[in-house]
Design a protein around this nucleic acid. Structure first.
Lengths: 333, 333
DNA sequence: TTGTACGCGTTATCAG
DNA sequence: CTGATAACGCGTACAA
């Protein structure tokens, strides 16, 4: 592949001149500029991003660490990031770190080796201290979907507790008194906060939530099925189910329908996340909208800003609140 | 960030020695090696991938061009790639090129600037000639979901026509005689081939498919809804619908159910792709399984191989065939 | 076993 | 307006 040197030789000018042409440098003769450009085109010249990154100390690429491309939630997240990187003409360096400490760490380190000064990372397994250290090291280090006080202005996150509260309030408002909850068996902060919110709402209404009414499932369709099966088998009585996310809700619905239990007539179901699935399943799922695409765009924007030298404001954080989307899976008692 | 030089100074050895330690070079004293390693750890040294790429002329990263992260189909594709890159310890450079000629081109060019010698690209808008040229330029250039004769051994693709035939055969085998088809309004090769396959099956069975029984929709949920609405409004008679993909099928089902038409009792529906949605929707969708994840892994594997100097075999191509997945949306007449 | 010196493709700082 | 030339961080022949 042709280098800047080849172009210079061919055009009979120096490297410096060619470089100026490439970067729209200020002082180059009109004629020379055209001639060089023509030759670049003819020789199919492309600037070497690596060499450029080496000397400029900036990579023009944003590192992304997410758990799992397959999950619609992360797909949406990735899409949000992509939207802003495209706008800024920045490349995405993607690392998957499947919610395991070592893979997440490895993912971030790889990004570091590529010297991307901006990164948005979704980490659930790494400790606060590790993340804080990275934040100190990388100017454009932004966390999505996680809140750490010490680096609050690098965090773009959802108020999961408020979401849980919203679920509970809505279902209580619809007259339900007997609830079941399907939480996640991976007790990272999200499910804990969501459950806390639910409990808060229930307490406020004086409704009890016995442990026997809570299932801890893998946070997917199958987990939802199993959890519901268990609930049914154990004869737990409930008129509404609050699920950890939409996939779980969908699984629960499947199992309910298989047992000839009508939704929402006999049992109401509420999901969380509002991924595509919520619109597609039948009955359409009432759920909490997680504005993850918007949040991801924001995170990317922030990362790019910080990386370009704009200082993070003190005492600021980027907290988002979910909203309830009423569809067809909840009935009034 | 600490460089190799800093380490050398600190350890009181030369650059070369440090470099050898980093790359597990052959001849370094045990003691020196340990000492250098220790210092690297202490100083938080990380090799600079850019500098390394510059001198070794290889990037240890695989470029990916896909249309759209949000689409579950592409998410699955990306996931397949990620699986093999992780295995090979290779970074993913992701570019989205939304089925438009200029964005696709831009995406590939950016990847080229980063000098990634392996790339798997999903391009529908670019002409054969352009792609062929890139293939000549980049050793590990692999096309997914597209077939070009001249570079057949760089192509990992699905036999869409066979898929269409399979749909038709299945539905005919179930006793249906009056069909409707919802194709895509974007007449790239996929829908054309699928429709051709359907026609072939129908012809073989002596069944006609009037133009009035075909709708051309945007290839998503909403497109499916509109198409079905149009079919219904126009009073077209059919006992089965063959959809361009699962999203379209799902949209069509929604509209059907809204009109109180039972699935599959009154109308059978067949999808294409077998994305998650097919399992989640109700009734569960009978569809064609597109082994895109496996294909994507294969494509990445191929790209990495070719990039590492293994020559593509002549006269070979990587053609996959879809299979039918029978669920609940098709009934016997 | 270890060190020296050069080059990878660019940008940027000087002179001219 | 243009041209040398020194970095950037690393790998690797070639010497020692």
């Amino acid at each position: 592949m042709a280098t800047i040197k080849d172009i210079a030789n061919e055009a009979g000018v120096s490297l410096a001149t060619v470089s100026r042409v490439i970067n729209d440098g200020p002082k180059v003769g009109k004629a020379t500029r055209e001639r060089v450009k023509k030759i670049m085109r003819e020789m199919g010249y492309r600037p070497n991003a690596n060499a450029r990154a080496l000397v400029t100390q900036r990579s023009a690429s944003l590192g992304v660490v997410i758990a799992e491309l397959l999950d619609p939630f992360f797909a949406t997240l990735a899409h949000g990031i992509e939207a802003t990187t495209r706008k800024h003409n920045v490349q995405i360096l993607m690392s998957a770190g499947s919610i395991a400490k070592d893979t997440e760490l490895k993912a971030i380190e790889t990004l570091l080796e590529h010297r991307c000064e901006a990164m948005v990372v979704h980490s659930k397994a790494l400790e606060d201290s590790v993340l804080i250290e990275f934040a100190q090291q990388v100017p454009g280090f932004v966390l999505i979907n996680r809140y750490i006080k010490a680096i609050a202005n690098r965090c773009v996150w959802l108020d999961n507790k408020a979401g849980g509260r919203l679920m509970a309030d809505h279902i209580i408002h619809q007259g339900h008194k007997k609830l079941a909850v399907i939480s996640s068996k991976y007790q990272i902060d999200d499910p804990v906060a969501r459950l806390a919110g639910i409990r808060q709402g229930l307490d406020a209404a004086g409704i009890a939530l016995p442990d026997s009414h809570i299932e801890y499932a893998t946070p997917d369709q199958q987990g939802g099925e199993k959890a519901m099966q268990s609930l049914l088998a154990r004869g737990v009585e409930f008129s509404a189910v609050l699920a950890y996310n939409d996939a779980v809700a969908s699984g629960a619905m499947t199992m309910l329908l298989d047992h000839n239990i009508q939704i929402p007539d006999q049992v109401s179901v509420v999901g969380y996340d509002d991924v595509l699935l919520a619109k597609y399943c039948r009955p359409k799922l009432t759920t909490l909208h997680y504005p993850i695409e918007m949040m991801a765009s924001k995170a990317a924007e922030l990362a790019l800003q910080y990386a370009s030298g704009i200082q993070p404001q003190e005492g600021v954080t980027y907290k988002y609140t979910p909203t309830i989307v009423k569809r067809e899976s909840v009935a009034r008692m």
